[in-house]
């Protein structure tokens, strides 16, 4: 390319690049830098604090993300299989709705629904399934968070998995149906194995987003340990102004996200 063209490209690319570099790339790198500083001295004390204070929170976060991911994928694999084989447009449309409902709203809605004195317990106590003097609390615990993450991510999973199922040519299914394969067998033997790579990508995408979930645990978390990692970062900054530990925790979360991405990238390469 001519020099003037290169310059034109640069001018075009500069403003958006500048914003992302300034407000994401540099802060991202400075996480690593700040995490190694303690009272203006190089130190690993921040990571020691992360280990001492937050190791169970990291496991807790991984557990919630893992549980929600497995639940979402299992439901999506079979729900989409059903939707692929027996077309049901209304159901498909309904499952797109959560895509357009922000996490904060999901958090609040589940808080109202699942709190000890929430709508669900009120409904269940009417038919005597719940003791109204000691109602169970699904919100304010890991299950509440998981329910929110599953509800919201299911829409995304349905979108991605159904898209990849639709790209499986109808004749592959007809050939199986011809031999008497049931809906379940068509999903298990044909659709699922032929969509493995897209499923891995969708899974990686959702797992990092679940690890990094912030507004949901903020809305329906209990405020007491164990907490999800993002809440710890937020509290560490907001209440203790401890940027060192917060950034060390941030770096740990980046590493988790990278680990997941790496693992899934390998799976995809093996799959093809």
């Amino acid at each position: 390319m001519r020099l003037s063209h290169r310059l034109a490209c640069l001018v075009i690319a500069l403003p958006p690049l500048a914003i992302v570099v300034w407000l994401f790339f540099i802060p991202f790198l400075s996480s690593a830098y700040l995490s190694l500083l303690r009272e203006d001295q190089w130190s690993l004390r921040n990571y020691y604090l992360v280990w001492r204070l937050y190791r169970y929170d990291i496991l807790y976060t991984l557990w919630i993300a893992f549980f929600s991911l497995v639940a979402v994928l299992v439901i999506a694999v079979f729900l989409c299989g059903y939707l692929r084989i027996h077309i049901n447009r209304p159901v498909e449309f309904l499952f797109k709705i959560p895509l357009f409902i922000p996490f904060v709203v999901v958090g609040h809605a589940m808080r109202v629904l699942l709190a000890p004195k929430g709508t669900l317990n009120a409904a269940l106590s009417q038919i005597g399934l719940v003791n109204m003097n000691d109602p169970p609390s699904i919100a304010f615990g890991w299950i509440g968070i998981a329910v929110c993450l599953i509800w919201k991510n299911l829409a995304l999973a349905v979108l991605l998995v159904l898209g990849s199922y639709r790209s499986v040519d109808e004749t592959f299914l007809e050939a199986a149906r011809n031999f008497g394969a049931s809906t379940f067998q068509q999903i298990k033997d044909i659709l699922l194995p032929m969509s493995k790579a897209s499923l891995a990508v969708a899974g990686a995408f959702m797992f990092t987003s679940m690890l990094a979930s912030f507004s949901v645990p903020l809305m329906i978390g209990s405020g007491e340990p164990p907490q999800m990692v993002m809440i710890d970062v937020f509290y560490r900054i907001n209440y203790q102004m401890d940027y060192g530990t917060a950034n060390a925790l941030g770096v740990v979360s980046y590493l988790l996200a990278m680990g997941v991405a790496g693992y899934y990238l390998r799976t995809i390469q093996k799959g093809t």
């Binding site: 690319a13 958006p16 690049l17 992302v20 570099v21 300034w22 407000l23 994401f24 790339f25 540099i26 802060p27 991202f28 400075s30 996480s31 700040l34 990092t208 690890l211 990094a212 912030f214 993002m230 970062v233 937020f234 900054i237 940027y243 917060a246 950034n247 925790l249 941030g250 770096v251 979360s253 980046y254 996200a257 990278m258 991405a261």
Partner: peptide
């Protein structure tokens, strides 16, 4: 360039935005 525009999707935003706030 494309990778830089992928970063904010690939990593948790909150810990990064904590530092972005300082910069702002």
């Amino acid at each position: 360039i494309l990778m830089i525009f992928l970063l904010p999707q690939a990593f948790p935003q909150l810990p990064v935005f904590v530092n972005s706030t300082t910069l702002l």
